[in-house]
Design a binder for these strands. Structure first.
Lengths: 363, 363
DNA sequence: ATGGGTTCCTTAATGCTTTAAGTATAAAAG
DNA sequence: CTTTTATACTTAAAGCATTAAGGAACCCAT
């Protein structure tokens, strides 16, 4: 039988068995330079024979105040993070940052029932990712007083932020379509609120939006669409999640409006891909009958037919930056990463297939 | 300025300020039923005004012996886990299991330089995922005496295992191809050893393989290929990773052998997809000139052209099962999940496009 | 008035380690 | 032979909380 944790001794037991002080045993494990090699080996050998599992992590942490890992706090169910390409890429970047520094990466969900673990998690810092702006949810986390960073969401006072210029990027998308002559728009967005609603929405719901990223992208789109003198129309559909399925549902609504929109802006590529699928099924030619623009430039965006016009941003870089900002004493409060508008065939008939894409905003 | 952790007090300080015992303060935070609502509110209010961040997780853990999270130990660089569809799906299942039970999920990398964090990580259990059988790497982890589960790798004594019948599933793939008349085979596998080699390999390297999953799948393939009286040939290429790129490299080698193999078995779908790409570029028709079979049935397998014949397994289920096995007192030592051979067009010309697939081994 | 049951709070033991500072001994320097 | 320096180990003081068991005060029924 594998010896269980309970049968095992402590530093003190090992010290007694060897006949040295506990300090020596501690040094044997964590500071070899403080001991003669012989004594160290004797201690480690005795430890092995006593099935001593090594210094208790909790006691060590209590003493040193250092946990050796950082947490990412995620608003949606945790397993979504592994299914959504954007979240997945972000976590990939965070993981890279953690690995480099030999830190563990703790994934935490927040929401009702999870306050306990959020308060008790043994970590050295927190990366808060895309949480809605609902006071109570985040308060226990903030109260811990741990180093924090917020990513792709509303700001917290004195907490470094990592993200992109959402509004400007969204404006570029809308402007691109407007320049092509479009005047009747449809917008598909992932949730603005965490209330489980999906369907068409009005301006009021928009103004009170709790999810900052969605709110800003909408502001960007609408700012452009509603500016200028040319008459323009816009319909908005809010989804429950950011998936192709949700995009399909949105398209069913938007494409049945009369007059039909000639261009659809989606706050994510997955939504846009769902829209394109329905459009194609309805016999619409993209981009001739309908222009579609996504957001994020996930890998699938350049493999769709036609290729999807979208805003490129690097989620991996975002993850790495978040870790760096978390661990830097005097990190900048605003860490804005660059974006580029990538014009592909789904919006612009002038893009030949050989040309593939035009990049705007490259550095 | 946000108050930092250092300025903050302890349970004792709060107790003194309120004029009660530390026990009462502790109860105020973790066992409300032990206190009158009035006293509890008074304590919490004082705690807030003192900027007390709540019970210290390390101290609590030291006392209770419970960390509130479990770890997944991953052999490759952590960020690979977010890029590989199989690993990602597995973690998704683990995440689901953790969320359900309100546990945190700690991602740990193993390998040189990571012994420290592996020994010190504050968790209640460990899920060991696809580690190679290289004694020293895993020993410090095993020595901790924490509850463990191994997944998709070699067995450890008295440690529950979660996985599939690798050999049988691989046999089914090879048999399927043999039944179709194939006699000249190519095999593409992800690493058998952790030594960074890639290229053609011989039987000796195969026998000493350190990665159990690859070893078993190869045994399954070869057992079928080399049985019976009909003369058959086989060439094997070992890759550095399990990516489309690696599959392409393998195909460059295998498809240039003369006589050319008529069927290629890949230990993962990503490898198989890479192979198909190169085959197509070389003007080979699949499945007419070359049959290709993958493994895992990742989402991309049914979207490729032609669709990919493969072995279906549920990684999500594997993740959920692993968590359950880890947390169950008397978990079975062998938790074998079902697989199905999914025959699609990439191997079988008889599969019409409308038919899509034949499933063998469904329960 | 007595006994039993609650409710609310306190006592006190315990969990296990890290590390600055100190001591003893031996080796090197003067 | 004394003094300095280095090495090897020990002393002892934190670090912060949980929880079983105990006690005081009160209520209710008999």
């Amino acid at each position: 039988m594998r010896p269980s944790l309970k049968d095992r001794g402590t530093l003190t037991d090992v010290a007694k068995a060897v006949g040295v002080s506990v300090a020596s045993v501690s040094y044997a494990f964590s500071r070899p330079d403080q001991l003669s090699p012989e004594l160290r080996e004797r201690i480690l050998a005795t430890a092995r024979s006593l099935n001593y599992p090594g210094p208790n992590p909790a006691a060590r942490m209590l003493r040193t105040g250092f946990a050796g890992s950082i947490a990412v706090v995620y608003a949606s169910p945790l397993y979504h993070a592994f299914q959504d390409p954007a979240a997945s890429a972000f976590l990939s970047g965070v993981a890279e940052g953690c690995s480099e520094r030999h830190l563990g990466l703790l994934l935490l969900q927040c929401g009702e029932g999870y306050e306990g673990i959020l308060r008790r998690a043994a970590v050295d810092g927190l990366i808060i990712y895309t949480m809605p702006n609902d006071g109570p949810t985040i308060q226990p986390v903030v109260d811990r007083g741990l180093p924090m960073v917020v990513v792709d969401q509303f700001l917290l006072p004195h907490v470094p932020f990592v993200g992109i210029e959402e509004r400007a990027a969204a404006r570029a998308c809308a402007q691109h379509l407007k320049d092509l002559g479009h005047r009747r728009f449809g917008i598909v967005t992932f949730p603005l609120h965490a209330d489980g609603y999906f369907g068409p929405i009005d301006k009021r719901r928009l103004r009170k939006a709790r999810f900052e990223v969605a709110r800003r992208r909408m502001q960007g789109y609408l700012g452009v669409i509603e500016s200028g003198d040319a008459a323009s129309s816009v319909r908005i559909w809010e989804c429950l999640r950011s998936s192709e399925d949700d995009g399909r549902a949105a398209a069913e609504y938007l494409l049945n409006q009369r007059p039909r929109p000639t261009a659809i802006l989606a706050t994510s590529d997955r939504l846009a891909l769902g829209v394109m699928e329905v459009a194609r099924k309805q016999g619409l030619r993209i981009p001739k009958d309908l222009a579609v623009v996504g957001f994020d430039d996930i890998p699938a965006a350049k493999m769709s037919v036609p290729r999807l016009t979208t805003v490129h941003q690097s989620f991996e870089e975002k993850g790495r930056t978040a870790v760096a900002a978390l661990l830097t004493e005097k990190a900048s409060l605003r860490n804005m990463l660059p974006t580029k508008l990538i014009i592909r065939r789904s919006s612009d008939p002038a893009i030949a297939d050989a040309q593939r894409e035009i990049v705007i905003g490259e550095r």
